[in-house]
């Protein structure tokens, strides 16, 4: 397998991907190189690849970029691939939620949340407040976890609510085998089975 570096938008994306790789592919997160970008376009600066991208490429690492599709999947995909084509650096790209539709990681997490009864409450709440704010993805996931962790001591709960400490491997909270993750699994499977240049 060619060594790789995963570039993702933020800490929550990084933790989710690490937990997914560990659960589905048995990869130790400590052996996977992650680089948070801060935003979907954090791989470039002044139109050029960032030092982290150049270094990974020069080091023979495969670059895996995982970001949100946001409002328009096709436009986001086109811009990223066009940038890397211009950089002359190969990239493997996946856009949440499923590399087909607009959306983000929170949409995917909403789909794989185990406690549908709780999620239903938030949907009702969001309908009620829609006139004030349309997208409540981050707040929805935070509130979902806050409810599930309500029996934990305060300090522990506050820690586990932070993006970098969330535990997506808890089966009672998240279903990492959900069909909504099929395209993500296929994407990662294809990369993890690729031989390195010398093999």
């Amino acid at each position: 397998m060619q060594p790789f570096t995963i570039f993702a938008e933020g800490k929550s994306d990084t933790k989710f991907i690490a937990d997914y790789l560990k659960t589905i592919f048995g990869l130790d997160p400590g052996n996977v190189a992650f680089v948070p970008l801060g935003s979907w376009s954090g791989y470039k600066t002044e139109g050029k690849p960032t030092a982290a991208i150049r270094q990974a490429h020069d080091s023979g690492k495969r670059i895996i970029l995982i970001a949100d599709a946001d409002n328009n999947f096709e436009d986001r995909q086109k811009e990223v691939l066009s940038d890397f084509d211009r950089f002359k650096i190969p990239v493997a790209l996946f856009l949440f939620p499923n590399h087909q539709q607009p959306g983000n990681l929170e949409d995917l997490l909403t789909d794989i949340a185990v406690r549908r009864d709780l999620m239903a409450c938030f949907f009702e709440y969001e309908k009620c407040v829609a006139q004030y704010r349309k997208k409540l993805g981050h707040a929805r996931i935070y509130a979902y976890l806050d409810m599930l962790l309500s029996d934990r001591p305060k300090q522990e709960r506050e820690k586990l609510l932070k993006a970098e400490h969330r535990d997506y491997t808890i089966e009672q909270h998240w279903n990492l085998h959900h069909h909504a993750l099929q395209s993500f699994k296929t994407f990662l499977s294809s990369l993890l089975s690729l031989p390195s240049a010398g093999e």
Partner: peptide, 27 residues
């Protein structure tokens, strides 16, 4: 950084390393 082609240097301007710091990216 040590690469297969030897030691390489990567220069980051302010915007880039500020962004990396904000994202808690290891630089």
């Amino acid at each position: 950084a040590d690469t297969p082609d030897g030691i390489m240097a990567y220069t980051m301007r302010y915007t880039e390393f500020e962004n990396a710091l904000n994202a808690d990216s290891e630089i």
